[in-house]
Design a protein around this nucleic acid. Structure first.
Lengths: 157, 157
DNA sequence: CGAGACAACATGACGTATCAACAAAAGGCT
DNA sequence: AGCCTTTTGTTGATACGTCATGTTGTCTCG
């Protein structure tokens, strides 16, 4: 059983940093999503899937692998692919090696969409994320992020 | 008109850091939300609103001010308050000073919910965010976040 | 004072995210 | 082979987020 000890509340400095993290998270997401929909008519979710698909050998990936590469669960992926299929960005095919599986394939329209969207989007990522930071800070950030990821991954254990 | 120059694609190091950021973002969000709903029956959105309300003088804030304190637009706030009202966590009242306005007030159940949820949640934030980082790293992070926020804010201009 | 601009909030529609339940195929084990 | 477990994917329900729109009240300034 868990003993009820007085919680270690965040001090003022910690609260400020935590708040700043959540603000960055929200505003960065918002800025990137708005740029995408404005300049390319794509949502962030669309873009997230189009990138690994466009880099895949035949412009096609198993749903399972696509899910792994973006870190989504099956349901979220299936719903999103369904919406994108309706808009003609991708098609679904049966998987030959594994009859359970499903292949997601980029259409010509899908490839055109990601190729049109990518340049402006990368510029936006630079503008809001990379440009304001120094090289040293980027290295430290990479370090910090990977340590946080390690902790998050072990949390599942 | 915009000249079409070759975009400055992310190099391998940049891509790795950007990927790590998005992974942290997704996994941290997911871990915190799942902890909240599991231990307290609250969503992240619930918690986000309950915190400033519980800290407000009478457990009540104008919708406008509540929105400012969490960085949400009116619509998002109104929908979320509506859902929380249905569950008895808050009530809506008319605003005396400004007949357009609306007051959001914490109910007894709402206060009980946030007080029950907060200790475990803070521990979880520590576990996944603060504990793995050193003091120096935290200071640098605070610095970095505020610089990014400044850039994001000027983007609106 | 009065007309137009603006601010505050609600709502409906649609896209997105999560969860539970389901179905079907693959793999493992005896 | 036959049973059991695991993997893979879909679906429906519900919660959440964003946009466009509408309503009402306040403010500004001529």
């Amino acid at each position: 059983m868990t003993v009820m000890t007085e919680p270690r509340w965040l001090d003022e400095r910690e609260a400020r940093i935590w708040q700043a993290y959540r603000d960055v998270r929200r505003e960065l997401q918002s800025a990137l999503d708005r740029q995408l929909v404005r300049d390319a008519g794509l949502s962030g979710a669309d873009y997230a899937l189009l990138v690994p698909l466009s880099e895949a050998p035949e412009g096609a990936l198993r749903a399972r692998d696509l899910g792994l590469s973006v870190g989504w669960d099956r349901s979220r992926l299936s719903h999103q692919v369904g919406r994108m299929e309706k808009r003609g960005l991708v098609t679904r095919e049966e998987c030959v090696e594994d009859a359970r599986g499903s292949m997601v394939r980029l259409t010509a329209a899908g490839r055109a969409a990601i190729e049109a969207a990518a340049p402006e989007h990368v510029e936006t990522v630079r503008r809001y994320f990379f440009d304001p930071l120094t090289d040293e800070e980027l290295d430290q950030l990479g370090d910090v992020f990977h340590r946080l990821l390690a902790r998050l991954a072990q949390g599942d254990a």
